[in-house]
Structures are given as C-alpha cells and as structure tokens.
C-alpha cells in the first residue's frame, strides 16, 4: 500500500513541543518561517538568532544552527555571523519588547547598514514572557501590569511604529506589516517572509516582516476574542501594508 503525505511538519522545525500559549500566533509564524526555509532549500546555511522573550526557546524549535542573543541584541549578533560567514543565511526572530524597546539601536543600524540579514518582528503590543507589562507598542488606554490604569500618552508616550520609522532607512530592501489571523493572511505573510529572505539571499539589503500577533494570556482574552481585538484595535493603530519592496517578482 502506498501512502501519500498530504501534510507534515516542515523539515526546518524540530519535533519539540512548542512552549507557546493556546491561541498565540508564534506557532503559526514559526511554521511559515520553517516552510520558507524548506522551500528555499537553505536549512544547512541558516542561522537563527533567538531573542529574550517568549521566543527565547526558538533555537530549540527551528532545526537550523542557532544562537541565543541578549535582550534586544539579535541584529548585532546576526551582523557578526553574517560578516564572519557571508555565505550564511541569518535571521532574527524578535518580539516587540526585544526589538522596539531595548533593541531599538541595534535594529535601526542593522537596517540602515543594509545588513544582509532578515528579521521577523512579532508585534503583540505587550511583554509576554515577563507577564504582561507595557511595551512601547502598547495601545493608548491599554491596561497592562505596568500600566494598570491604561497607557496614558502624557505619561508613557505613544505606540511606537517601528516599520514606519525603518522604512526611511536606505538599507531596507523589503519591509511589510502582515497578520496571521486568517488563512488568507497566513498565505500573504508567508509570501512576505519569503521576500524578506530573498532580500538577503539576492544580496539586495535588509529584510523585515512585522507580524501583528495575539497574546491571549496577557491580553486577558480567549483566542477567538484575541483575534477580534487584533482585527479591531491593533490593525487600526498598525495598518497592514507593504512599505518597501526592492526584491521585485519572485522567481
């Protein structure tokens, strides 16, 4: 009897059980990143750089070489790998606390240098791993454990739009903000991630995809409510869209 495999785990993912909460979008993004690595056939030369935050275990989930970076420093670590081994494919996987707060200097300068690396930026507007504290990306009025009365612009400033800031840097070759809360969005996100890798592979420049994601645990919502919150609130503050595409048509 012959069997036909219709669906399987991507080769670029290990068989480790994911540590993410039910309804969290990290798992979806991990899967599509791994599918892109499989499709591009780059597993052996890829190095993933894990951040500090919920995806601190990403090294264990991606079946590629990996490095655990200090909080916010993944783009600098990735730069070191790429400069030492220009034939490698390097990507960072960072949350909004990691990338948009403590790591702003590293991401801005890696992008501006046109560093031949790729960044997957998970924006769920909150700190997950440490237990739901305010992020620079938290929405105005959003209640978190460190903004218990709601984020107040006068006190805590405004939601930081990282992609809108980065799009002005000349070193960026690909930049798009996507979501993964519907099958159509997942397909679109995967195309964007592939292009962000191609920006590196084709020696064009720095590639980044910002993925709006849920955090049911720290938002205090169930998975379905979280998707509504993402669609109604997050997308309003952070509209989806393509900012930079120097990659062109994918072949």
């Amino acid at each position: 009897m012959s069997k036909t495999i219709l669906f399987k785990r991507p080769d670029a993912l290990t068989d480790r059980e994911l540590t993410y909460c039910p309804g969290c979008h990290h798992g979806i993004v991990h899967r599509i990143v791994a599918e892109v690595i499989d499709e591009l056939g780059i597993r052996d030369e890829t190095v993933n750089i894990a951040p500090v935050g919920c995806s601190v275990f990403a090294n264990d989930f991606f079946d590629t070489h990996g490095i655990g970076a200090a909080h916010g420093r993944a783009p600098a670590v990735a730069t070191g790998v790429k400069r030492a081994r220009p034939d490698s494919i390097v990507f960072t996987y960072q949350g909004d606390g990691d990338l948009a707060a403590i790591g702003t200097a590293e991401i801005v300068h890696a992008a501006n240098r046109g560093e031949r690396i790729t960044t997957i930026f998970i924006n769920n507007a909150i700190y997950g791993m440490t237990g739901g504290q305010m992020a620079p990306t938290s929405l105005l009025g959003m209640k978190t454990t460190t903004s218990p009365y709601g984020r107040d612009a006068r006190r805590e400033g405004y939601p930081l739009h990282v992609s809108e800031l980065l799009k002005e840097t000349a070193g960026i070759a690909y930049l798009e903000r996507v979501a993964v809360s519907s099958p159509q969005e997942v397909i679109k996100a995967k195309k964007a991630i592939k292009k962000a890798f191609l920006a590196q592979i084709n020696d064009i420049g720095f590639g980044m995809v910002e993925v709006l994601s849920t955090c049911p645990t720290n938002w205090g919502l169930d998975p379905v409510e979280s998707i509504s919150y993402l669609n109604d609130k997050l997308k309003k503050e952070y509209p989806l869209g393509l900012f930079v595409d120097k990659v062109g048509d994918m072949k």
């Binding site: 970076a69 200090a70 420093r73 730069t79 590293e106």
Partner: peptide, 11 residues
C-alpha cells in the same frame, strides 16, 4: 554594546 554582540555572533 553592539560591538560586543557582533563579536559574540562572529565568534
């Protein structure tokens, strides 16, 4: 801060 992390990656 970035320099030392670049060294970390390269090393």
């Amino acid at each position: 801060v970035s320099a030392v992390n670049m060294i970390y990656g390269a090393a």
